[in-house]
Design a protein around this nucleic acid. Structure first.
Length: 616
RNA sequence: GGGUCGAUAGCUCAGUCGGUAGAGCAGCGGACUCUUAAUCCGCGGGUCGCAGGUUCGAUCCCUGCUCGGCCUACCA
């Protein structure tokens, strides 16, 4: 087809030969996605010395070889195959992204008109030529458009779609007409001859830039008639399956970039695409920020590396600061820092950031998770529930296309009503049931070793907080589908909260449950330093008794409280879980872009036993 | 951690009651050049996750291992 073909063939033969030999002798077999993980390969020698070869990361196969060959040919044709930039036109007012073109008023007008014409046609019938010609005249008059994007289809024939990750726009190259290519050299020299040659070498997934004019095809789709092509970047690996996307959830999470590409390319899908999930997440978060900012809150960032892991009952990640030679802990909660700021005079303060807890992984737990925590001076727990309810509704409406109702699995969740039930009322039916069982009855009575004051009610006397909580968690929690604030918690499990004015044994604390999942909790903040100190001391003795999650005494926090903290209420909202509810996702890993995964293992690495006999 | 199910072509999957495997898409070659994931004809591509065992023979049966899904338990 072209000059230089011979040299090119020699080169590709040499490449072929190398890979052939490599495959035969180097045991390299794995390819992208699946194979990269599922068939362990021989790494060279000891683990700490091994620097993987490029071919071990992008393992050659017929797909990658074809693309590599195209890339070499493109290099001859266009020069630099990874140019630094491409300037898009600005016909639409701003930068002409594909989405901007698709939403540009004259384009929308033509598409609307064409849709109306097509509505009257039989399937397969084409719009009348004279209408099309009139449209084409007005489209061409709009001027020269320069767009860029990733090829979403195999370039077979003259048509291909480009995407900017959101929308798609079709482009058309005419073999018979003039088609130039823009070389990627310093002057961006025009090569009027070889546009079509370049067109033959682009692959599904490559990035290209195109310059031309808008027109309507015979089937009525607004497209770009390309006059000049510019190559922008190569996809060395094949694109994910366009029908199914990436099906394996592990691979979706591990190769999120490919999952996101797939969600743009994918033709059929149930529910939201991966991209839409994260767009919705972003809307929820920005909605909450806007709400709080508009309400006079100040956003702050407090330490993520802390000398003490406190503020929540949780096991921390531990690390070490070399210069100071001290242990540091990834924070389990920002709570105590934020309340120091309330002491310091921030009456409304929030932080939206990550917490880290060194505990199990599950559908609802990731080692790092995003929490929105905020505090309001002079407010109690009831005011906080009102505020939280208003804010969550506002954010849900913003993220959920204006609706307060979401479908979650089998359930329909309605955010328009938040019930409030005391823990005792919630637990009562279960306790009465339990009381009828003798075994259960005596067990409950015997399980109360120490003399903590209990709660007395009705037919039953429960002397220790955790028992109620246990029954609640076991029997009640999973039944709370619609948004429900559970209020009045036993004091013993809430070492940072104030007692209720009505009952000194009850903490002014709430937890918000939706779909059986704890989404938020908050309380009237304890601001008596002496009492706080005593609660910490209690926690410390729990700790000594083996409760690893009991809270650690924070002396500086006691000092801060001693400067005086106004009455205040605070709340922590689990953002990931809220996003799960709004996106109908049942695993937290589906709403975190890069959730924690086991590291990819390579054969030959230490850490897995049994490799001695596996040998090689 | 416990239970359970799974790993087959680059991708999505089928299949073999034990005789070394197929489809669609993707790739390559050719034809075509106004297509909406998928134009037509042809071709190449797999140590059926890894290691052992039973067997004349294992991708299939058994054991162990690795990795993962689901259910379950603890923290949000």
């Amino acid at each position: 087809m072209s000059r230089g073909g011979f040299a090119c063939r020699i080169r590709s033969l040499a490449v072929d030969l190398f890979w052939h030999i490599y495959k035969k002798f180097a045991v390299a077999k794995a390819v992208n996605y699946n194979q990269a993980l599922k068939s362990p390969r021989l790494w060279c020698g000891e683990r700490n010395m091994s620097i993987p070869e490029f071919q071990e990361i992008i393992v050659p196969n017929d797909q990658t070889e074809a693309r590599a060959e195209h890339l070499e040919k493109l290099r001859e044709l266009v020069g630099n195959v990874y140019p630094n930039k491409f300037d898009r036109s600005t016909l639409s007012g701003g930068e002409d992204t594909i989405t901007a073109i698709k939403n540009w008023e004259p384009v929308v007008a033509i598409e609307t008109e064409m849709a109306a014409i097509k509505a009257d046609l039989a399937p397969g019938e084409r719009p009348p030529g004279e209408m099309k010609d009139a449209m084409n005249e007005s489209l061409k008059a709009l001027g020269t458009v320069r767009i860029a994007g990733r090829l979403t289809t195999t370039p077979r024939g003259n048509f291909v779609h480009l995407t900017d990750g959101i929308s798609k726009l079709q482009i058309y190259c005419n073999k018979k007409g003039p088609l130039a290519l823009i070389r990627n050299d310093a002057e961006n020299m025009l090569d009027a001859e070889n546009g079509w040659a370049m067109w033959q070498l682009v692959d599904h997934g490559d990035f290209i830039g195109a310059e031309g004019y808008l027109f309507v095809t015979n089937t009525g789709e607004v497209s770009v008639h390309v006059e000049k092509l510019q190559f922008l970047a190569k996809a060395m690996l094949p694109m994910p399956d366009k029908m199914h996307g990436i099906a394996d959830p592990e691979l979706q999470r591990r190769f999120r970039y490919a999952d996101l590409i797939a969600s743009t390319l994918q033709v059929e899908h149930d529910g939201l695409t991966t991209r839409e999930v994260f767009e919705r997440r972003a809307k929820l978060i920005s909605g909450m920020r806007r709400f709080l900012d508009d309400d006079g809150f100040i956003e702050v960032e407090t330490p993520m590396l802390t000398p003490k892991a406190t503020g929540a009952a949780a096991k921390p990640f531990e690390t070490h600061h070399n210069a100071l030679d001290i242990p540091l802990y990834a924070r389990v909660a920002p709570e105590l820092y934020l309340k120091r700021l309330v002491v310091g005079g921030f009456e409304k303060v929030y932080e939206l950031n990550r917490n880290f807890r060194n505990e199990g992984l599950s559908q609802r737990h990731n080692p790092e998770f995003t929490m929105l925590e905020f505090y309001v001076a002079y407010m109690d727990v009831n005011g906080m529930m009102d505020l939280a309810e208003t804010m969550i509704k506002d954010a849900v409406v913003k993220a959920n296309d204006g609706s307060l109702v979401v479908r979650y699995g089998e359930n329909e969740i309605d955010f328009s009503t938040f019930r409030r039930i005391s823990m005792l009322d919630a637990v009562m039916p279960s306790l009465v049931d339990a009381a009828l069982e003798d075994e259960r009855n005596s067990q409950l009575a015997n399980d109360m070793p120490d003399g903590k004051e209990g709660l007395s009610f009705g037919i039953y006397n429960v002397r220790k907080g955790p028992n109620i909580v246990e029954v609640f968690e076991e029997k009640v929690e999973s039944t709370l589908i619609q948004p429900t604030f559970i209020v009045n918690y036993p004091k013993s499990i809430s070492p940072l909260s104030k007692a209720s004015p009505e009952n000194p044994n009850v903490a002014e604390r709430f937890e918000l449950f939706i779909n059986g999942m704890e989404v938020a909790n908050g309380f009237s903040e304890l601001n008596d330093p002496k009492e706080q100190y005593e609660r910490f001391v209690d926690q410390m003795s729990e700790r000594e008794r083996g409760d690893e999650e009991a809270m650690v005494l924070d002396e500086d926090y006691i000092r801060a409280l001693s400067y005086g903290m106004p009455p205040a209420a605070g709340i922590g909202i689990g953002i990931d879980r809220l996003v799960m509810l709004l996106t109908n996702k049942h695993s937290i890993r589906d709403v975190i872009l890069f959730p924690h995964m086991r590291p990819e293992k390579r054969e030959g690495e230490k850490g897995s036993e049994g490799e001695a006999e596996n040998g090689n």
